[in-house]
Amino acid sequence: MISAEHLGRRFGPYVYPVERERISQLAAAVGELHPIYHDRAAAQSAGLPDLPAPPTLATCYGLWANVALLHELAEIHALLPRMLHGEQHYTYHTPVYAGDTLTATSEITSIVHKHGQTGPFDLLTLETQLVNQHGALAITDRLVAVVRPAYAPLYLPPLQPPQYSAATPLPGATVLPPVTEVAPGVALPTFHAPPLLAEDMLRYAAASLDYNPLHTDAEYAHSLGMEGVIAHGMLVMGQMARLATALGGPLGLRSFNVRFLGPTHPGDTLGFGGMISAVDSAASPQRVEAELWAMTSDATPRARGVVQVALAE
């Protein structure tokens, strides 16, 4: 268990260049094919200086890519292979583009000891501030993880993850149409992903640098008493984010919060949808809130979230 003495512990700073190739690969791994995430000329034609960061990029730079932080967390018994993503929260302050440099500092803001059906576990909340090269706060990333007790064997993720290859789109990827009607109760465009394959999880692991073996190593997953590997929660959230950007555009997101409700296994078919829940027409620019969800083909929820966007004037 994680000792309460670590509450308030800080980590960092850690510095990362935002790479154009990383943006493109991460977007492709969640099925986002809009050219602004893959082609600099297309981004500039849309009035952007370079490829914009996909909504979930912050976690790549704030945690998964940060081998030093992962080792420091392991020292306090929060080892990556013991972690299961429970919730993810983002607040967006300043746009992030390829070519930017982000400096991340993290803090443990909550440690809660709990007891479930399979025994004791910890709920660990890690909040990361990502500041750009101009000293402006770009993204606040708050992650809530379920940390399981020790199992054997356990091993750390690779110290040097393999080089990532060119972006390979998630099968069935499409470009969602922008949302043009804005009013409470309006449904967002829905889409279904093909049945999830183990190779889709490997693709996302390479794109996000999340090498938790729970998502890619069936033998390890079996050692935890599970049926097999499960999808990264952030793979599901990344697909949900396509609805968020269809509503607010690549720069319109102000906050995006998701709670993961159950594991997604190879062979599962997920459907994604959402509905506008509130519109603040008095705000400038206009603010819109929408509820988003991901469900299996038998309507079992896998994730629910809320996104707030500012519409372009």
Rank of each mutant, 00 (worst) to 15 (best):
I23Q: 05
A46W: 00
P49C: 13
D39A: 11
S45H: 14
Q25V: 05
P49V: 13
A27W: 00
V30Y: 04
I36G: 05
I23T: 03
L51Q: 11
A41S: 11
A43P: 03
H34M: 11
H34K: 11
D50K: 04
P52N: 06
Q44M: 15
Q25A: 14
P49W: 10
A41N: 09
A29F: 01
G31C: 04
R40P: 13
S45E: 15
A53R: 00
L48M: 15
Y37A: 04
A29W: 02
A42L: 14
H38D: 03
A46I: 00
S24F: 02
A46G: 08
A27F: 00
A41V: 08
V30H: 04
V30W: 02
Q25G: 09
Y37R: 07
L51Y: 09
S24W: 02
A42C: 12
L48E: 14
D50C: 11
Q44H: 09
D39M: 05
I23K: 02
P35M: 12
A28H: 05
I36W: 06
P35K: 07
Y37E: 07
R40E: 15
A43Q: 11
A29P: 01
I36K: 06
P54Q: 05
L51K: 07
G31W: 03
A41F: 12
G47V: 08
P35R: 09
P54Y: 05
P35L: 08
S45I: 08
D50N: 15
I36V: 15
Q44P: 12
Y37G: 11
A41E: 14
Q44A: 14
P52I: 04
Q25N: 12
Q44W: 07
A43T: 11
V30C: 04
A28F: 03
L48G: 08
L51P: 05
A46S: 14
L33C: 06
I36E: 06
G31I: 01
R40G: 15
A43N: 09
L51I: 13
A46Q: 11
A27E: 01
G47Q: 12
L33W: 06
A46N: 10
A27G: 01
S24V: 02
L51N: 09
A53D: 00
P49R: 13
A27H: 00
L48Y: 10
P49F: 10
L26H: 03
L48C: 12
A53E: 00
L48S: 11
P52D: 06
Q25W: 00
P49Q: 07
A43I: 12
G31R: 01
G47W: 09
S45A: 15
P52A: 07
P35I: 07
R40F: 04
A27D: 00
E32D: 13
A28G: 01
H34T: 12
G47A: 08
A41T: 08
E32L: 07
L26F: 08
H38A: 03
E32Q: 12
G31S: 02
D39C: 14
L33F: 04
L48V: 06
A53M: 05
G47I: 06
A43S: 14
G47L: 10
Q44N: 13
Q25S: 14
I36Y: 08
A53P: 03
P49E: 07
I23H: 01
S24L: 01
A27R: 00
I23S: 10
V30A: 07
A46F: 00
A41M: 09
L33Q: 11
S45C: 11
Q25T: 09
L48P: 10
R40S: 15
H34W: 10
A41G: 07
R40Y: 04
A29N: 02
A43H: 08
G47R: 09
D39I: 06
P52Y: 05
